[in-house]
Write a protein that binds this DNA or RNA. Structure first.
Lengths: 342, 342
DNA sequence: GCAAGTTTCGCAAGTCTCTCGAAACTCTCC
DNA sequence: GGAGAGTTTCGAGAGACTTGCGAAACTTGC
């Protein structure tokens, strides 16, 4: 802890207490060779006792800075998890987080970018959104780095991005259902133009191929990530003549919609229909039934992205600026073997 | 103490008394980094002593302006609704929203306030949090207005605050349960030291009195607003020898915990146990069963608070700066008449 | 025992920041 | 459009820390 107000300890004080000169203390601090081992140890002890810290150095640079956090949409607890992760890192560095919502668009409008530029932020974090080339150059010309979390589209070479292993998530979820004996498995994903949706669906496809189960196009649905979409698509899927015995939803919210669609049709979950979600929001464990879902480390993704951004801000070299964190299937009570067929 | 009418204090006077130059006082007021900690503290003390107020706010911000949004905690979709409301109004005015979380504390630490002052925001919105007198004066001296949303504790006269009609909400929820025939109604509320919790419980009390039903202390629980608290208290209540036939939870999250406690005991909702939530988060309509709950207009509360704040920023007169928006009982499927007794 | 060499340390002179105020500037209100 | 209040820029002064160098102290070889 820094002792505010009170004058900070100086090497002069250390020197006095240790009975040596100021330069000697300095030399100890800098690991110079021309200090006797015994003297060094003694000085070191006094330094430790006083909890001496070298003067500010670069730490308090700009004093205050801002980071822009941009959501394409901030409904659902999803956003909360991300915000938490960013706050965690930024807060520790005493950097303010400015929130923006693009109101559903994946690309910000110029007007918005103008406002951002006027704020002279240290950097920008885009969540499920992106900027076009012109805007990218505008940021670059002002030396404002940016990071993308959970990218929506393809990114040019060199743009740092943090995501999660969507393909593996889709694979694991589908394998789990196959392992339970399901053969007619539907998937409701996010928008087709969002990369992470496609990766999950591809994981789903691969798992089916692997098991020798044919992929049926009418069982693959693209929608949005919201609860209403899950309900609509879920209803349609369940009204098909040969309805699926399991549905893999693109988000926990969608899964909620599917649960309702099932309930309205008198289908019990998991006895008559298995449902797998995606995200593992904190509530998912508390639903009826507790949701089997693919855990996505949202908070960690956000923290990681923020750390990368701050490293870029400091001008440090960042290797591995394209990271996908691991997803993990969490099995709860919304999945079970399919009902016996005849 | 502010000396109204008398010639307003100027930073020149502060400077003289503190024995520093005018620019130094200005720098302290603006949170500039190039002032020694001891000097800063000294000047701050003189400022406070004189009750200095900056002449006029810079209402005519050149395009940029920031508003600080402070949560005592930002778990749960609760926070998302609030953020949305603030963004809505601030975004339209092209004002940036800086988010902070106090990490569970209801009062910010000085270090945090220093950062805020350095950012020179137009105003501050506190959500379920508050500042102490010294900090309040620090904001006042910089002419930074603030608004409190859903106050945790008592507020001094004149502090603008937007809340919701908690008492009416408690009353309506309890009356609804009484109307269904329930007599043994438990309530799980938020922390006892948070005002809105108490108001709800008082509404509950009044409803019981009205109906001539005795208030039984063991049916009144205070916890936190989270799902775990609902589960714990719910479990205890349901394990009582003469268990309640209805539970009125302090939040939808708590209600989720109660639902699980009921399920674990083989109690059906609403047949064996009625549950009422509070908040009406977007998911609540999609739970199993859809939750009867007290709708709190969180987004609107946040928008209103932001509007009031911006009016204060512009120096406009704000009458009715203490507003409670209406809550509304939303009846869904988690409540029903109590099971027949013998 | 003495000269040569080595080690250890402090002096003095540098370098780097931090602080602060003079002067110039901006903004607002008459 | 001038006066007054407050803000910003910039440079100088003051410490805080670093470094080169030399002097004492110590060691070693003969």
């Amino acid at each position: 802890m820094t002792n505010e107000g009170a004058a900070a300890t100086t090497i002069a004080e250390i020197a006095k207490e240790a009975g040596v000169s100021i330069p000697t203390v300095s030399k100890v601090l800098n690991g110079r060779p021309d200090v006797a081992a015994s003297t060094r140890a003694h000085v070191e002890a006094i330094i430790d006792k006083h909890g001496y810290r070298r003067r500010k150095s670069r730490a308090q640079r700009n004093g205050t800075g801002l980071v822009e956090l941009v959501f394409h949409e901030l409904d659902s607890a999803w956003a909360g998890q991300i915000i938490k992760g960013v706050e965690l890192v930024a807060g520790a560095e005493r950097i303010g987080v400015v929130l923006s919502e693009l109101g559903g668009e994946h690309r910000p409008r110029q007007e918005w970018l103008d406002d951002v530029l006027a704020r002279r932020p240290l950097g920008v974090i885009f969540v499920l959104s992106d900027v076009d080339d012109t805007q990218r150059r505008q940021l670059a010309s002002r030396n404002i780095p940016f990071v993308v979390v959970d990218t929506a589209g393809d990114l040019p070479e060199g743009v740092p991005a943090v995501g999660s292993q969507n393909w593996s998530g889709g694979l694991a979820a589908t394998r789990h259902l196959l392992g339970l004996g399901h053969r007619r498995i539907a998937v409701i994903s996010g928008p087709a133009d969002v990369l992470c949706s496609r990766a999950r669906v591809d994981g789903y496809r691969t798992a089916l191929d692997e098991a020798g189960v044919p992929v049926e196009p009418e069982l693959i649905r693209y929608g949005d990530f919201f609860v209403g979409g899950g309900y609509t698509h879920g209803s349609e899927l369940l009204d098909q003549p040969e309805r699926p015995t399991a549905i893999f939803a693109g988000s926990d919210n969608q899964a909620l919609g599917v649960l309702r669609a099932a309930r309205e049709r008198g289908l019990r979950v998991p006895e008559d229909l298995s449902v797998v979600g995606y995200d593992d929001l904190p509530v998912s464990d508390w639903l009826t039934p507790p949701l089997t879902t693919v855990h996505q480390p949202l908070t960690e993704m956000a923290s990681t992205a923020t750390q990368i951004l701050l490293r870029l801000v400091r001008g440090e070299k960042v290797r591995n600026s394209r990271i996908d964190l691991a997803t993990e299937l969490v099995v709860r009570d919304s999945t079970a073997p399919p009902p016996a067929q005849d």
